[in-house]
């Protein structure tokens, strides 16, 4: 600590760290991106954190296709085609829990105190976390498609439509992420975030037509599966990736995603602002 640096005199009335502040929205976007890069660096530095988005869905595919596939649809290849797009939806939803979990850990540590003492929008750290973790969804989908291809899964539409299907799944997962971001800023312990998240996720992901068509289910369960938006997203993913009637599933998926974001993102920011 021998060298000194050039420091301009700092009068208390100084306007801030740089010149005129750019437009507000632009600043929020830029700060969010800087914070998203932080999340991304953290993910890359600890790749073992990606186990839940890579190995876990692959295991699900193996279990369902080879253990149950034959019994359920008589052919493992046919069943794989039915199951894989739905497993994609399930795996990114499970992956989104980690965002709330790590956010909760961050808030408890001092790092977020620093962010909160900076002249940035309160929403920026939350948006940054959600954006940064999009990478986890991409990895998960890539691994599933790669593994699926190795065991005989083929895209039934065309690459562009399939890509649109993947993007739809990612968009829906980023909406779901806001639910766990909200849990992350409300809950006291990271463990509580995870516990509550799974309570939410099991009925949402398994209570769908993921494994078997809806009409094979008992009536009360059919009622739930039909109102569960995750069923729509799974159907939309199947239609766009393996082919089949799209119907209104894509529209419904997009509307649900927007609806979830509109409700949960402002709530999360509000609770984050109030959190001491």
């Amino acid at each position: 600590m021998t060298t000194t640096i050039e420091r301009s005199p700092a009068p208390v009335t100084s306007a801030g760290p740089s010149g005129p502040p750019p437009a507000r929205t632009f600043r929020v976007a830029r700060h969010s991106l800087a914070l998203a890069r932080r999340s991304l660096i953290k993910t890359l530095r600890t790749p073992e954190q990606l186990l839940d988005v890579t190995l876990q869905p692959v295991m699900f595919v193996v279990i369902f296709v080879y253990l149950l596939g034959g019994a359920i649809s008589g052919s493992q290849t046919v069943y794989l085609e039915y199951l894989l797009p739905a497993i994609m939806v399930q795996s990114v939803m499970f992956a989104s829990v980690a965002t709330g979990f790590s956010l909760n850990t961050d808030v408890k540590k001092g790092v977020f105190d620093r962010f909160r003492s900076l002249p940035i929008a309160r929403s920026a750290p939350l948006i940054g976390s959600v954006l940064g973790d999009l990478a986890r969804f991409v990895v998960s989908i890539a691994v599933l498609l790669g593994f699926g291809y190795a065991i005989g899964f083929r895209i039934g539409t065309n690459p562009l439509t399939a890509l649109a299907g993947c993007l739809l799944v990612i968009f829906f997962a980023s909406a779901i992420t806001w639910i766990f971001v909200l849990l992350g800023v409300i809950m006291r312990e990271p463990g509580a975030v995870q516990g509550t998240a799974f309570l939410v996720l099991f009925p949402l992901t398994f209570g769908t037509n993921m494994m078997v068509p809806t009409d094979t289910l008992p009536g009360w369960l059919q009622a739930w599966v039909k109102i569960n938006p995750v069923s729509d997203v799974m159907d939309a993913a199947r239609a766009l990736i393996t082919g089949g009637p799209v119907g209104d599933t894509v529209t419904k998926s997009i509307l649900w995603s927007i609806g979830i974001i509109v409700v949960f993102a402002p709530l999360a920011v509000r609770f984050y602002r109030r959190r001491v």
Partner: peptide, 27 residues
């Protein structure tokens, strides 16, 4: 603000920590 416990991001390098703060300060 410098707290009594160091509030740096442990997964980021020294440079990355400081560059992040700089960007959040509109540098």
């Amino acid at each position: 603000l410098t707290g009594q416990y160091a509030s740096v991001d442990e997964d980021l390098t020294g440079t990355q920590n400081l560059v992040l703060i700089g960007e959040l300060l509109d540098l």
